[in-house]
Write a protein that binds this DNA or RNA. Structure first.
Lengths: 132, 132
DNA sequence: CTGAGTGCAAACAGTTTGCATTACT
DNA sequence: AGTAATGCAAACTGTTTGCACTCAG
């Protein structure tokens, strides 16, 4: 999963979707910016690079990728991770923890849903805010 | 923590906030409807009961409760729980799992943030949707 | 009595949709 | 050529804010 851009584009094509310039640009930007990106951030970055893509197309592409499960568990780099957000400054950082993943897997096998994904978010004060 | 309404109202008073009718109504409704309620659902229920409360007051009350940490880890019934949402029908149900909580506690003690809360959301297909 | 709190309506922010136009295949 | 996909702008949904009025303390 080192080349998510190529993978995503191949999937799109395989499903009969056209590989338009705006679509590719959004996929590429998604890979550059990482997960938990807002539509506006994508638009802004594209704008900075002289590539104008309408917000509607961004939303439509994001929905498409979501439907094809191309953005579910898989971040650009392919690793699975979660978030810690600072109550004070809003800064978001990420973490991974296999102990936690195992607890979730065990739990998933016990519930009556067919679990196919999960999110964990921790809240607290970041080191920077804490030290003032 | 069996009387969350009373507790919340006492806290508000203790902090110098007035116990107005709209404020009380929102707190009461929050207790009735449980967690993960939208502002609109609160407004609708109040409307059904003949109590008209402006949306602005609802948002302001929710923010107030959040600032006082009265809605953080503590649902109306006082138990801490998480959510499973169905990818297909959107239905949300809740669960608690001490194994998971322990994993999170261990993790929290290892990171450099001062963790004071967390959310976990599982995604999947609910039994009903699965069986059709 | 007096200012904290309210309701209203206008302002905002984020997302969705209809439609005429563009551009892959 | 034909139609999927786009951009624009208007429509929506959800949330926030300014201000004159109200009511709890």
């Amino acid at each position: 999963m080192t080349d998510w851009v190529g993978h995503a584009q191949r999937e799109l094509e395989r499903e009969g979707y056209r590989l338009s310039a705006p679509r590719s640009a959004v996929v590429q930007t998604l890979a550059d910016l990482g997960c938990s990106v807002t539509a506006k951030e994508i638009a802004d970055r594209l704008h900075d690079r002289g590539q104008e893509v309408g917000v509607a197309s961004i939303y439509r592409t994001l929905e498409l990728l979501d439907n094809l499960r191309l953005t579910r568990r898989v971040g650009p780099s392919g690793e699975h991770h979660h978030h810690i957000v600072c109550d004070t400054c809003g800064q978001v950082s990420t973490f991974e923890d296999s102990d936690l993943e195992r607890a979730i897997e065990r739990l998933a096998s016990r519930v009556d849903y067919a679990i196919d994904g999960h999110d964990v978010t921790l809240r607290g004060e970041c080191p920077t805010c804490r030290s003032r």
